[in-house]
Computed example of a mutant assay.
Amino acid sequence: MDHRTRDAGGAGRRQFLMAMAAVGAALTPAALWAQVKTGTDAPAAKALAPSQRALLDRVADLTIPDSDTPGALAVGVPAFVTLALAHGLEGAGAPVPAARFTGGAGPADATVLDWLMFELDLKAGGAFLAAAPAVQLQALTALDGAAYAPGGQASPWRLLKGLIVTGYYTSEAGASQELQYELVPGHWDPDVPVGPHGRAWSNDWTAVDFG
């Protein structure tokens, strides 16, 4: 291989790495929210079955309901999660192995939403979406408890819940109403009293790891 071939290969690798870096930079929560606001998330939403969209809406609402601030459904988190799934963020696009389904009864090429529907239907004793709100909450609570119990690290619910929480706290309402926000933070104080209704600061929220 002469020097011209080596240089061309090096340039190709550099271009590839630059392109990958650009993709990684684009897949941030802010970029996904921008797509939601401009409506460019529509193709991803259409790729979901109506039952999957309804499931995502209901689960987001149960995970972070309305309180004195808007909840996950009210701020549009399902649209954020839909885009995150379409982009395969945090491995969300990979099929869920049959072993992750209770009883190992998962279909081939099952998505994380297929898994969620299966597990919640099972825990609700029937169609989750048709169940009473109290039954839905009980089913999701059981799923959440199993996912965060010892040995539950591989549960797909951890991935979905992480996307819901990330979407919520990077939304405008989540970052400025649910969390406190100070445009120009003041001095550092190592010891600040926190009451039972104190809110965290969105300036300090660093749990975002996309790309």
Rank of each mutant, 00 (worst) to 15 (best):
A146T: 12
L159D: 02
Y168T: 00
E178C: 07
L137F: 06
R100Q: 13
A99T: 02
P190T: 11
R100H: 14
V192I: 13
A108G: 12
A154C: 03
A146S: 13
G106Q: 05
D144R: 06
L179D: 10
A130L: 09
T102M: 05
A110Q: 06
D109V: 14
Y168M: 08
L116V: 04
Q136C: 00
A105W: 05
V135N: 05
F118G: 00
T111K: 15
L113A: 05
V96M: 00
A124K: 01
A110F: 03
W115T: 02
P95C: 06
H187L: 14
E182M: 12
A134D: 10
P133D: 14
A173L: 05
G106L: 10
P95A: 03
G104A: 11
T141I: 10
H187F: 13
Q177D: 11
A94H: 08
A175L: 00
G126N: 08
T166Q: 08
A142E: 15
T111L: 13
V165Q: 15
E178M: 11
A99W: 00
G152Y: 14
L160P: 06
P97F: 04
L179A: 09
G104R: 10
V135E: 10
L179G: 06
Q153F: 09
L140H: 05
P185H: 12
L163K: 02
L140V: 11
L113N: 00
G103Y: 04
R158Y: 10
G167R: 07
T141F: 05
V135A: 09
V194Y: 12
A92D: 09
R100D: 09
L113E: 01
A175Q: 04
L129Q: 14
V165G: 12
D121M: 04
Y169C: 09
F128L: 09
W157P: 01
Q136H: 00
D109L: 15
G152A: 14
P107W: 05
L137N: 11
A142F: 05
G106Y: 03
Q153W: 10
G91T: 03
E119K: 00
M117Y: 03
G145E: 15
S176D: 07
Q153N: 10
E172P: 04
A130R: 04
L179W: 04
G152L: 15
L159Y: 01
P97N: 00
A146K: 08
P95E: 03
G145W: 15
A110T: 04
A134M: 01
I164W: 10
T170R: 06
V184A: 12
P193C: 13
D191Y: 15
